[in-house]
Design a protein around this nucleic acid. Sequence first.
RNA 1: GGAUAGGUGGGUGAGUGGCUUAAACCAGCAGUUUGCUAAACUGCGGUAUGGAUUGUUCUGUACCGGGGGUUCGAAUCCCCCCCUAUCCGCCA
Length: 423
Amino acid sequence: MIDLYRIRTDTKAVIDGLYKRGVPHAAARIEAICKLDIEKRSTQSQLYNLAATLNRLNKEIGDALRLQGETALLEAKKSEITRLKESGKALTQKFKEHTSALLEQLYALPNLPHASVPMGSHADDNLIMYATPPSTKSGHLAHWDLVKNYDLVDFELGNKITGAGFPVYKGKGAKLQRALINFFLDQASKAGYIEMQPPILVNETSAYATGQLPDKEGQMYQIPLEKLYLIPTAEVSITNIYRDTILAETALPIKHVGYTPCFRREAGSWGADVRGLNRLHQFDKVELVQICHPDHSYANLEEMLTYVQGLVEQLALPYRIVKLCHGDLGFCAAMTYDIEVHAIAQNKWLEVSSISNFETFQSNRLALRYKDKNKKSCLLHTLNGSGLALPRILAALLEWNQTPEGIHIPKVLQPYTGFTIIH
RNA sequence: GGAUAGGUGGGUGAGUGGCUUAAACCAGCAGUUUGCUAAACUGCGGUAUGGAUUGUUCUGUACCGGGGGUUCGAAUCCCCCCCUAUCCGCCA
């Protein structure tokens, strides 16, 4: 949620930012918000003055009663209070309406892009920061054939048990998956991220706080009986650890890593890229979350990027780094880098990590703050990135490491798998 | 799922309708005393938001799990909801 204070004081820049992101009628929407804000505060002021008067009168009645005062005077005061309260009803109603309307309109606005975000409205406008030189190899089998040939992942079984997009990992396929999870967790621990195992169901408040609601309601699986949501990413659970929190400046930055399954309905987005492991309803992911001081968040974003880059390099996968343009940014993000690994048989880049700075967008909803030197509460910045998403890494590994003898396991994973090749 | 007990500030915890401006203690912060540490003493507290003034500060309002209600007046009485603990049941 964009900070109301920023809208109030830096109105033009807010409108510009929203236009860059392609928000229609941005100027009109911001003007409406400013108008509501002014009306709300004026109403609030009147309401508070009224309450102050009522408090004073009530205190006078109390004092008079103790001193055995005149009843006629008391009755006069009582009727005055009744009259004032009557006039306060409409005011209260107005205030409530203003407050909820204001919140609703603020919730509907996406984050403002950072100044360095490339112009553009489409994924084609994204900026490619780095790419491993392309390979000339050919004759590879796609991973969906490999998993069948080596009996590593069974999609039909998943269809039977649950439905499309819920595969069963089998034998060495399951072990390889588990090896990757452990490798990623251990690497993150070494880099100073504290490991967390959070719930994979969250309540409505949590889903609002990290921005999944109300924007992405249709994308999450829901448990209607308890009004809970299956997390689309561990970011939701882990970031919400710090909801309604005021942190000491000395505790920053906070760095967490967590492994969870992730669940996405991906309603309406089933197109050409869904074969095999490319897009699933349930998948595993190791997620990194940072909470940091506003002055350091962009330095930490770069550090996170370098860290994730190190992971794909250790796995010896060709990859590229993409800086998302305005139109491709997620709802909550101010800046995002994607890391995509290359899948040789498909000749496709697969997104395996999305590393974003949300600035104060989430912390404003979370009420996540720190005390500055003047003991004033200030919003912190939240960051997160995948480190990494499993199925597409698995797909790329299988496609690249296939040989006539079998599929070779990368060196760094061998201590985790306990085998060096899949026959 | 059933029964019981609960939910008060950073923590513990008092408070059955107005002498409560939420006591007291602990923790914290600032100051005084002391050669240092420690201790003692004094003072200050949170969060949100409005207004006035900006060197700063002054002031109002709300907040005792949440929402309604009764009343001139509610932490306190009434109703609904949520949550937690313990025991029973079920269970990896």
